[in-house]
Amino acid sequence: MEVRTIKVFTTVDNINLHTQVVDMSMTYGQQFGPTYLDGADVTKIKPHNSHEGKTFYVLPNDDTLRVEAFEYYHTTDPSFLGRYMSALNHTKKWKYPQVNGLTSIKWADNNCYLATALLTLQQIELKFNPPALQDAYYRARAGEAANFCALILAYCNKTVGELGDVRETMSYLFQHANLDSCKRVLNVVCKTCGQQQTTLKGVEAVMYMGTLSYEQFKKGVQIPCTCGKQATKYLVQQESPFVMMSAPPAQYELKHGTFTCASEYTGNYQCGHYKHITSKETLYCIDGALLTKSSEYKGPITDVFYKENSYTTTIK
C-alpha cells in the first residue's frame, strides 16, 4: 500500500517557510505537534488534498525554529505562539472599519479597549522592536488589523473576551517599542525636605499616572512627601515624541487643539466601556464603527496623549 502524501510549508514567522512532505494517514499533531492554519487549530486533523502548498504555523520545537521565533517575536515564552494563534482565530472574524481616516474595530468580545489602543497607536510616533509587531502594525494602518490585535493580546497575556485596560495595554506595548531616546527629568520640591531631581528613561519617561493635564504637570502637581507634608512635583525636561497622561476616570474637559487623542471610560472596574476622542479640525468621538463630532467635550476621561518633541522648564 502506497503512502499518500502532500507537500506543505511549516513556519513560526510566515517569513521562513520549511518544506514538509506530510503523510495523509496521520494527523498534523502526530507529525508536527500543535499546528495552526489561519489561526485555526488543526492539530487533530489529517492532511487533505486542499492543504497542498498551504502554510501551517507550528510551535518552535527545534533550534532553527526557536531562533526564527525569537528573532521575529522577541520572546522565548513557549506558550506565546499558541496564544497568538488562538487569538487570531477570533480577531480574523472582527470587522476593521476605516473611521475618520483611522483603522478602528467594530465592537465584539469586549474589544473596546483594543480599538482605543489601536486608534491611539496610529496617532503617536512609535516604532516597535519585534519585527512581528512592526509588520502587523503597518498592515493594521492599511486596514488589516487582525494579526496586530492578536499579537497585542498575546504580548499582554490576554484572551479574547476578557476586559482590558488601555493604560495597561499601552504599557505592555511600550515595553516592546523603541523608547531608548526618551528621557524625563522631574523635580520634587518640599518646604521641609528641599528639592530632589529624578531622571527617568524609556517607558517611565512617557507615562504618568495622577493627572490628565500635561500643562498642569509642567506647572506642578501636589504629591505627598515622605515627611508627610505636601510637596510639588513638576516637569523639568521632556525628550520624547509623545507623552501619555493618565488618571482614574473623572469628568474632564478636553479643549480642541490642546491634545492629540484621549480615552474615555464609562462604567466601573468590573464592567465598563471605552471610547476614543481625537482632536482634528474639530473633536471626534470614535466608538467602534461609530463616529460623532463636537466642538467641545466633557466626560469621564482616563488617558490623554500629547505630541511632544523637546521641553525644558522655565521655572527657576
Rank of each mutant, 00 (worst) to 15 (best):
E2K: 09
V3K: 14
R4S: 12
T5G: 11
T11D: 06
T11K: 05
V12N: 10
V12E: 06
D13A: 10
L17D: 10
L17M: 10
T19P: 14
V21T: 12
S25A: 13
S25N: 15
Y28P: 07
Q30G: 13
Q30R: 12
Q31A: 14
Q31R: 12
Q31T: 13
P34W: 13
Y36R: 03
L37H: 13
G39S: 14
G39N: 07
D41N: 10
V42R: 07
K44F: 13
P47A: 11
H48M: 13
N49L: 15
S50W: 12
H51M: 10
E52D: 12
E52T: 11
G53L: 11
K54A: 15
K54W: 12
T55V: 12
F56L: 11
F56G: 05
V58Y: 01
P60N: 09
P60I: 09
P60L: 04
N61V: 10
N61R: 11
D63M: 06
L65W: 08
L65M: 13
R66K: 13
V67A: 13
V67E: 11
E68F: 06
E68I: 03
Y73G: 02
Y73A: 04
Y73P: 02
H74D: 07
T76Q: 14
D77M: 06
D77A: 10
P78S: 13
P78Y: 14
S79W: 10
S79F: 13
F80M: 02
R83C: 08
S86C: 14
A87L: 04
L88C: 04
L88V: 09
N89L: 10
H90S: 12
H90E: 11
H90W: 09
T91P: 07
T91I: 00
K93C: 10
W94Q: 04
K95H: 14
Y96W: 06
P97Y: 08
V99L: 12
G101H: 07
S104A: 10
S104H: 00
K106W: 00
W107Q: 05
A108I: 06
T116N: 01
T116Y: 06
L118P: 04
L119D: 06
P131K: 08
L133T: 03
Q134N: 08
Q134G: 04
Y137W: 10
Y138F: 13
R139M: 13
A140G: 06
R141Y: 05
E144N: 11
E144D: 12
A145V: 04
A145S: 05
N147F: 04
N147Q: 10
C149M: 10
C149S: 04
A150T: 05
A150H: 03
L151R: 03
I152N: 03
L153T: 00
A154W: 03
A154G: 03
Y155E: 01
Y155I: 10
Y155Q: 02
K158V: 01
G161N: 09
G161C: 07
E162I: 00
L163A: 11
G164N: 01
D165T: 04
V166H: 00
V166F: 07
R167S: 05
E168W: 14
E168G: 15
T169C: 12
M170N: 00
S171T: 14
S171H: 15
Y172N: 14
Y172W: 11
Y172H: 09
Y172T: 12
Q175R: 12
D180H: 10
K183C: 06
L186D: 04
V188K: 08
V189P: 05
V189Y: 08
T192H: 07
C193E: 00
Q195R: 07
Q196P: 02
Q196F: 13
Q197H: 07
Q197D: 09
Q197S: 11
Q197T: 14
T198C: 10
K201W: 14
G202Q: 04
G202T: 01
G202P: 02
V203Y: 15
E204M: 06
A205Y: 01
A205F: 01
A205S: 06
M207P: 06
M207D: 00
G210F: 00
G210I: 02
T211A: 11
S213V: 01
S213M: 01
Q216D: 13
Q216K: 10
F217H: 01
K218C: 04
K218F: 02
G220I: 02
Q222E: 12
Q222S: 14
Q222M: 10
Q222D: 15
I223L: 08
T226M: 09
C227R: 00
C227T: 01
C227N: 01
G228K: 06
A231G: 02
T232R: 08
K233T: 09
Y234W: 05
L235G: 01
V236M: 08
Q237R: 12
S240L: 01
F242Q: 02
V243W: 02
M244A: 06
M245Y: 09
S246M: 02
P248S: 13
P248W: 15
Q251S: 09
Y252F: 09
Y252P: 00
L254H: 06
L254Y: 03
G257H: 08
G257N: 06
T258D: 14
T258P: 01
F259E: 01
C261F: 00
S263L: 08
E264W: 04
Y265F: 15
T266K: 00
G267P: 11
G267S: 15
N268I: 07
Y269I: 15
Y269H: 15
I277M: 11
S279K: 02
K280M: 13
K280I: 10
L283C: 09
D287W: 05
L290D: 15
L290A: 15
L291N: 10
T292A: 08
S294A: 13
S294V: 15
S295Y: 04
E296F: 13
E296G: 12
Y297N: 01
Y297Q: 07
G299T: 04
P300N: 10
I301Y: 01
T302M: 00
D303V: 01
V304Y: 00
V304I: 10
V304H: 05
Y306Q: 10
Y306H: 00
S310C: 08
T313N: 15
I315T: 15
K316M: 15
K316E: 15
